[in-house]
Design a protein around this nucleic acid. Structure first.
Lengths: 204, 204
DNA sequence: CTGCATCCGCTTCGATACTG
DNA sequence: CAGTATCGAAGCGGATGCAG
């Protein structure tokens, strides 16, 4: 991409990460170190030459580094600094999921990212453990006094299990739709609704 | 831009605001309502057809609305929701300003945006008033107990006046370079260094 | 088989000229 | 002033090739 030629922090940031696909590559690497094929798998639709180009540019810019031993790419410290911008964009994008999946591709770790953005900085005096089921693998949400952890895996003895279409799970967790209306159109809640409501109410 | 075809909040957000120029248009509108030529003036290098295309798309997406009376474009509520993502990207981009302006274009309100991102959520028990001078118009920073206001204008009786190259002002205010080294290469500090240090230390 | 590079048709961008 | 029209250049997407 050509530089915008503007002496502006936003324009300079976009000179580095504003290209098509670039922030999605960073999304993948924010979840875990990846090999080239992991990235290609997590970025359905990208041309492999473009992926190689972007990785080269991000490496030059100090956002990504390549580990020659494991053959993986990972974010540098500077790259991890994009986490806040990533989360903010994810939060803004969540309402855009409400229209449903359609023919779009789907990955569990994308859903996990969205949930973790919803519950960023959320604390709960009484711990809440939630299991989210949308096909394997599953996602666990654990809210406690220090914060909320969202990860792929099976939580031990969850207070509540959510299953159903992703847009309903996200809509309910983000507070955009009520539990009642979500359940009417396909959300299944198993276990303690009280715990679930506490989690949703604690969100900030 | 083609959709990424991914059922992911980030990808859906980028389907809307990930095109080239789009976030820069939102940057302009975040500062003030703009007429078409204001936007063109604040987006040096954009082709007018592209600007028209983007405004149309952003209007359809509910991010921007056109006021037929004043002939201005402005952000909708939904568009203002991008403020957090914008600020996060600006913060990340500030170190990229350190290399200096070169042949890039410059606008005072871009600098003001960067400064406001630096002092987002910064509070000061004892108020601090700072004037930034990099050619007219000037920027005022006022930190107080409730937060910090950054705007274009002249502050009344500032505790300290900063002038010099933008990258030094930003480097000093963001804490990336010390006041001493900034002064050695061209930053001019007039007034109370103590007040300035208090402001910089209060930054979060 | 992984990790790219090359090629090519197509879309988007950039610059400028033009119009209501 | 506020865009639209046009056209060459650059970037993207998809298929394929090929080296380690």
């Amino acid at each position: 991409m050509r530089s915008y030629g503007q002496f502006c922090a936003l324009a300079r940031a976009l000179d580095v990460v504003g290209d098509r696909w670039t922030l999605l590559i960073i999304r993948e690497l924010a979840a875990r170190p990846c090999r080239f094929r992991d990235l290609a798998e997590g970025l359905p639709g990208i041309a492999t030459n473009l992926l190689a180009d972007r990785l080269r540019m991000l490496t030059v810019e100090g956002v990504v580094e390549h580990d020659p031993v494991g053959g993986t790419y990972q974010l540098t410290q500077r790259g991890r600094g994009l986490g806040g911008a990533l989360k903010a964009l994810v939060r803004w994008g969540i309402p855009l999921m409400a229209s449903g999946q359609g023919t779009d591709e789907s990955r569990v770790h994308w859903l996990s990212l969205a949930i973790s953005a919803i519950f960023e900085d959320t604390t709960a005096g009484e711990p809440v453990r939630v299991q989210v089921v949308t096909g394997a693998p599953e996602i666990e949400i654990v809210a406690h006094q220090q914060g909320t952890d969202t990860r792929i895996g099976n939580v031990l003895s969850p207070h509540v299990i959510l299953s159903g279409p992703q847009e309903l799970i996200l809509g309910a967790l983000s507070g955009d739709i009520s539990l009642e209306s979500a359940e009417k159109v396909g959300l299944v809640i198993t276990g303690s609704r009280v715990a679930l409501r506490r989690l949703i109410a604690a969100r900030r």
